Simulated scan of single mutants.
Amino acid sequence: MKSSIFSSVLAFAACALATPATVQPLLKRNPTGSFSLVAYSLASDYIDIFYSDGIAYAGDSSKWPYGSITTDVTFVITDTEMITTATTSGVTLDSDTLLYIRPTDDEVLPVGFTGNGITVPSDAVTTNFIFYGTYLMWEYGSGSLSDSFRAKETNVTGVYELYFDFSNLYPSGYETPVVKSQS
Rank of each mutant, 00 (worst) to 15 (best):
A39V: 01
G112T: 06
S181Y: 04
P25G: 03
T87F: 02
A11I: 03
Y132C: 13
T88R: 11
T88D: 07
S3G: 04
A124H: 08
S142A: 13
I130E: 00
A18P: 02
T85Q: 01
S34A: 01
R150N: 05
T70V: 13
T71A: 12
V179S: 02
A56W: 01
P103T: 10
Y140H: 13
S95Q: 07
S68C: 07
V156Q: 07
E81T: 14
G115L: 15
Y66V: 06
V179N: 00
V108W: 04
Y100I: 15
G133M: 02
E175W: 08
S122M: 09
R150H: 09
S89R: 12
P121H: 06
Y46D: 06
N128L: 14
I5A: 09
Q182D: 10
A13N: 08
D105G: 04
G117M: 10
I77Y: 02
V179F: 08
S36R: 15
V76K: 15
F50T: 04
M82Q: 12
Y160H: 14
S3L: 13
Y40R: 15
T87H: 05
T119F: 11
F164S: 07
T104D: 00
P25F: 05
P65R: 13
E161K: 11
G54N: 02
I47F: 02
Y174Q: 01
P20Q: 08
Y40W: 12
E153P: 06
D72M: 12
D45C: 05
S44H: 12
S41Y: 15
W138V: 09
T22E: 12
S3Q: 10
S52H: 06
Y135F: 11
G173T: 08
F149T: 09
N128D: 14
T70A: 09
R150F: 02
K63P: 03
I83S: 01
S183L: 13
I5K: 02
G141Q: 11
N30V: 10
F75D: 00
T119K: 10
T97Q: 03
I83E: 06
L162I: 15
S61A: 12
V76E: 10
L17F: 00
S8N: 02
S62F: 05
S144M: 11
A56Y: 03
T134Q: 14
D165R: 01
L17W: 03
D106S: 15
Y46F: 15
S61F: 11
V23M: 11
S172G: 03
N30P: 02
L26G: 00
E81D: 03
F164C: 04
Q24A: 12
I118V: 14
E107A: 15
D79E: 10
E139K: 15
M137H: 09
V38D: 01
L98E: 01
Y66T: 07
I47G: 01
P103M: 11
S181D: 05
S183K: 14
F129R: 10
W64L: 13
I69Y: 13
C15D: 00
Y100S: 10
R150P: 10
I55M: 09
E81R: 14
G90R: 15
D60K: 13
P31T: 06
T119E: 10
D147E: 12
S3F: 09
A58Y: 08
K28Q: 04
V159E: 00
L93Q: 06
T127I: 00
N116V: 12
F50S: 03
D165P: 15
G33K: 06
V159H: 04
S36N: 12
I83A: 05
F164L: 13
K180H: 11
T134E: 09
V76H: 05
